[in-house]
Design a protein around this nucleic acid. Sequence first.
DNA 1: CTCAAAAGCTTTAGGCTTGAAATAATATCG
DNA 2: CGATATTATTTCAAGCCTAAAGCTTTTGAG
Lengths: 178, 178
Amino acid sequence: MKPKAPGPEKRTLPSVGAVSKERLRLWLRILKVSRFVEAELRERLRVEFGSTLPRFDVLAALYRDDTGLRMSELSGVLRVSNGNVTGIVDRLVKDGLIVRVPVEGDRRAMIVRLTNRGRETFAELAAVHEAWVDELLGAIDPDEADHLISLFGTIADRFEDNKTRDVQGGKGAHDGDS
Amino acid sequence: MKPKAPGPEKRTLPSVGAVSKERLRLWLRILKVSRFVEAELRERLRVEFGSTLPRFDVLAALYRDDTGLRMSELSGVLRVSNGNVTGIVDRLVKDGLIVRVPVEGDRRAMIVRLTNRGRETFAELAAVHEAWVDELLGAIDPDEADHLISLFGTIADRFEDNKTRDVQGGKGAHDGDS
DNA sequence: CTCAAAAGCTTTAGGCTTGAAATAATATCG
DNA sequence: CGATATTATTTCAAGCCTAAAGCTTTTGAG
């Protein structure tokens, strides 16, 4: 609970300072909406399918790539830690929705792939999920949606450029919403 | 385990089902941005202050209310489960930033309040936090911010109306971003 | 070839999160 | 008053999440 260094952390602050409050307010609104939508999706996945958002995310990533993904690619695409993916994958394997396949020529690596059952299950889930999102964001009309998509796209891209947060040398071509 | 009803969600739309995809895309963008910002804030809180976002949220809620909040009010304001708050509060108490005070006349209830140290600590944190958010959302200019604040506000309000997710009869006047 | 560095993954410790069950105290109904 | 329902909080089991440490395998410099 102590600032490790009182160091003058002057990070080339953008402009004067009046805008500050506005962006904070905006951030709180964004947070509120995204938490509401997430909570609602999580709840519905739980009640209607006995599943979770992280599981859904993993299945979605694998659904896009029929060849499967390495553990490290998976954690790169989903932007979560390596150890985290291990646990989620363990459970999905136990449920019979995915399999771990050894990689030819590299005994360290593992490729994770959907089983047939996994593919079917996800197809079902994805359709319902899309309908849910459409319903939950129903207040946003098409014009606004378009505007927001491009606006948020620029912000997200800016992050990627600034950070290059790609830890494991992931390919990063599977983000799916680009 | 089965979608109860895929209900034909046809709202006076220009094209048949094209909007659906748009809202899904938008949702993925929102999610991406909010996860990036959250991850960055969490990381900075950890590195610079040895703290976390949930702790910050609790302190923020208490900072607004000098009289303190009951456990149930706290979980209502933060929209997290009761049991969750218990754990976070335990740790903050152990750190000496807040205290649990018995409620006069109701031996079940507890009021949680900032200590002086807690108040000072949070004041520091809040200032830095605001600067971070301003920096992270720097790509959004004031006009857009204004527009987005009101847009997201409508969506958030719609949720509150639709759900009345207020579990413990919370006062709901402390959301702070209204 | 050798062996140290790097890469891929899992394990671990600690914390966050939920829904459900358990505890304890208060309120209400007869 | 006494039994029962409700309310406030904590505890619990299970899962998610991270950073850091550990293990195995591969790579690559000398």
